[in-house]
Design a protein around this nucleic acid. Structure first.
Lengths: 419, 419
DNA sequence: AACATTTTTTTGGACGCCGAAATAAAACAA
DNA sequence: TTGTTTTATTTCGGCGTCCAAAAAAATGTT
């Protein structure tokens, strides 16, 4: 309840309502838009024809409409969907062993991908933004899309991102801190750019897929090389005051616990992440500094089979991970009482080994009444969801900040021509 | 972005904008409303005169206006404020040794108070709602305010409240669980009623006092007979999906830690609450079940002076409390990165004893980058803030759900007369 | 070919905001 | 006293958007 309401707000809000319905459902007829938005057919006609005139939406060709099931009686519905050419967005995922890029159109379809294998850990903090800008430029050149047509770029990183400053405050993928990224992209390519936490982008992707399921208050925990979390609060992905996202992986489990990549001791990640499991299992001291190198997938597979075989060190590693994860989730539940917790990432492959210990910890850590209201769900999600979520977020922003605004009104037009 | 926008929404939103400005600032002139809301003078005239016609607002008498500082040049401003008679609200605070009630007018001024000393702990769960309804009825009879004029009642309790069901899910003030309260008040008196967590009501009160300071994302921790927390997320007091509030006091600190009133072990409360401090200091086993009786204030004062004198048991009790509180806050910070944490309640009297241990725990539990973004503030707030917050919340609800809607439009009026 | 059915557009009226001009109410100045 | 200046509020006409109802469009059915 911040903004004053006038006809401008009404237009923006209803245009956005319509755009959001299309994002969720894909192409649909005008009548159906009316059902989704609650607007009258008359208003739908007005709004949709303006959006079409603006080049944002597009009527589907008759041929395409025919494909939509058997023709019923009455005037056939004309499907409307986003005009793919309305805008483009770029998504970048930064990991410890390289960059992954994707270019998408206004419908969210990926037009081109690109991967580059620059090790980030020792990247020059001052130059990294330029590297990212360069990679984006290369991707655009390859597809002959001018930078002007890219309405927004999103960059997903592990760790703490400051979306206000467009920088990576702290990330296990970098040795340095406060690495500025967004400004280089904005200055060199003229593309508005945001940096965000990768687990948050997974959450963003999930709300895009099923708003009913992941729409209320939910947490997405990503387990793998690290442990990340995205929070959805009241249907919105939560970015803190500074844009710094939730860092569940670096929530303390036990004081003076095992050493974490962040330099503290006892973080959940230092029990649950790949490197932690290997460290437990190999019998190394928990105070041994974790390696900053990427861990080959087969090492983790080997650990899992060892545990399934009954190897005591491996079994106990997963037990410790389960307990730490369980108490971590317990603390989260007590604070936010989310209705759903989604466990995702390669680490969930070992769930059968982890789950009993996780459940025991939850019993110890949460009052029964609260524990019953939360559903814990394991979902096989890969890193591709990070790219999808980043694209979704960028498009939602374009919808809200550009598409919803629409053409200038008469009065504003007059003012513009005078100026 | 849920609701479709039409002239109805515009009216509601702008009326509410104006009402909220008045809630925050108190009576003001129309020009000033324009500055606060961004609405044009013409619109302010229209809206305010309708609100006055509805009996919701009232022009201040000329005499009162004169009191407002030295008269400047020009037509004098006419102050407008809530009409106190527009509605009443009732606030009830439930504690272990009784009920505290207050009746307020539409301006938020308390017209009457009442306290009753019914021990709640062994109250009959089925009858408790009727007791509350009876107490409210008595308060109303005393002040000759008919129940019809009470637009809303709010009930604040320790523990987990389910505001949907209007019940107390679990509370240290009751032996029983799932104690229904709201429906008895609604059925017997016809007053819409909500149950909420007491620490949340403190948070509500703080946002009412200073929105700039407590408006973004903040946590209010209440330390005393128990440990409660209210969360403010994006300027709104957070009530979870079921209406169950944050239960910071029952967040686990250490597995297998001291026994808590909730039956689990290692809750923050079992280190920090009054009973826990006394239990540590008296050298009792941490597994000894805590007393459910109210603790006299002088016992706590005695413990504090003992600690200041250097009594080792007392000193160590506060050290343990500080560590548990610090790690608890660390875990909260890592999840939400609030910009402010407010420590309140009688327990903060011992802050000098607690603070060093709290700070050390924060250092161990939070990455430096995040720790620097949060300000921890100790505020001397008593239980009266609970009543104030409950009144505030009730009034805000009345503003939004009743006052903002306004009179029926022509078309709706026609429909009504037909029906 | 006429009718039925469903979708979409057109038309006219309502509502609420706004800018500009008018009015109101006071202090100040001559 | 009377006119001037200043500030607050109201009045008036125009604009943008929504909606209900009616009309038009496009297709299947008989």
């Amino acid at each position: 309840m911040r903004e004053k309401a006038d006809s401008d707000l009404v237009r923006r809000q209803n245009r956005l309502l319509l755009l959001e319905a299309l994002r969720q459902q894909g192409g649909m007829a005008r009548v159906e838009m009316g059902r989704h938005t609650g607007l009258s057919p008359a208003s739908i006609t007005t709004i949709s024809s303006q959006l079409i005139a603006d080049g944002i939406l597009k009527e589907a060709s008759a041929a395409h409409a025919a494909a939509e099931g058997p023709q019923r009686r009455g005037r056939p519905a004309t499907l409307i969907d986003f005009n793919p050419k309305a805008a483009n967005v770029v998504a970048v995922r930064v990991s410890i062993d390289g960059l992954e890029l994707a270019l998408a159109d206004a419908r969210g379809s990926v037009l081109a991908r690109r991967a580059s294998r620059t090790a980030t850990y020792d990247a020059n903090p001052a130059a990294f933004g330029k590297v990212v800008a360069g990679e984006i430029a290369t991707l655009l050149a390859k597809t002959r899309v001018p930078a002007k047509r890219v309405a927004r770029a999103g960059i997903a990183v592990q760790g703490v991102a400051d979306s206000q400053a467009g920088a990576v405050v702290w990330s296990p993928a970098f040795r340095g801190r406060n690495i500025s990224v967004a400004s280089a992209v904005e200055d060199r390519l003229g593309i508005p750019c945001r940096v965000a936490n990768d687990a948050n982008m997974i959450a963003e992707g999930l709300t895009g897929i099923d708003r009913a399921r992941y729409g209320g208050t939910a947490a997405v925990v990503f387990m793998g090389w690290g442990v990340g979390m995205g929070l959805i609060i009241n249907g919105q992905v939560y970015h803190g005051p500074t844009g710094a996202a939730a860092e569940f992986g670096h929530m303390n489990h036990l004081p003076d616990g095992p050493l974490c990549r962040c330099g503290r001791r006892g973080c959940v990640e230092a029990y649950v992440a790949d490197y932690s499991l290997l460290r437990w299992a190999s019998g190394h001291a928990a105070t041994q500094p974790p390696s900053s190198n990427a861990i080959p997938a087969q090492d983790m597979l080997a650990l899992e089979t060892a545990a399934h075989r009954g190897d005591p060190n491996a079994v106990s590693a997963y037990a410790k991970a389960g307990e730490a994860l369980g108490f971590g989730l317990a603390r989260l539940i007590v604070i936010l009482t989310p209705s759903r917790i989604v466990l995702a990432g390669p680490g969930t492959r070992a769930m059968p080994l982890i789950r009993p210990h996780l459940d025991r910890a939850l019993e110890q850590g949460v009052v029964d009444e609260l524990r019953r209201t939360v559903e814990i769900e394991v979902v096989p999600i890969g890193t591709d969801m990070i790219i999808k979520g980043t694209i979704d977020r960028a498009l939602r922003h374009v919808d809200r900040e550009i598409f919803a605004h629409g053409p200038l009104t008469k009065r504003v037009r007059e003012l513009e021509t005078v100026a």
